[in-house]
Amino acid sequence: MDFRTDIIVDYMPFFIKGTLLTLGLSLAGIFIGLILGLLIGLGKMSTNKLVRFPFVWYVNFFRGTPLLVQILLIHFGIVPLFMSPSNPIVSAIIALSLNASAYIAEIFRAGIQSIDKGQMEAARSLGMSHVQAMKLVILPQAVKRMIPPLGNEFIVLLKDSSLAAIIAAPELMYWGRAAQGQYIRVWEPYITVAAIYLVLTLSLTYLMNYVERRMKTE
């Protein structure tokens, strides 16, 4: 079997551009997902059933339906309502953020609820308000426990950003498909794309391991 490295060389500028967009989509998804996830996680922990209800169903929907379906719904259904024509990058960021926030909300909730309730009692017995106790006692401990599952979620998010190729957001996978279409070759573009994704996820793994170690020695 011949392996045409010239295809890879030809397409390298596009792969690099695509990689940058993949990183951009993932970072935006992580950032917005974290903020939304914290709010939704807190909402889901409300003791009031009516307050909890919309948050529970937010998570049910975004965790229970395929991301691909969500991307298509958002790109062709939601985004056109306020943007014409709808920009695939905007759609991808919205879909990835909303989807990630559902998982991140659950990570936050699990992290906070894993802290022994004696910690909250001790903080409250010293006169702290609920918010103070959360901020000073519960969250600093919970965040440490959230790091490994969050790392997991970030890796999933990075890989899932490849689904944005379907709405022609010019990220890494999009250029892989373009190269395959142009040269009618499978191995060269897809192996290259896979290798780049692997480099990205491994870097992320090492970064999260580093963060985890740093928090432990503290």
Binding site: E121, A122, A123, R124, S125, L126, G127, Q141, K144
Partner: peptide, 18 residues
């Protein structure tokens, strides 16, 4: 306000480990 004036010691200490 009341809890500021009432100290409590628990069976399992509940010190803040961080």
């Amino acid at each position: 306000e009341i809890r500021k004036e009432v100290g409590m010691v628990f069976q399992h200490f509940n010190l803040f480990p961080h």
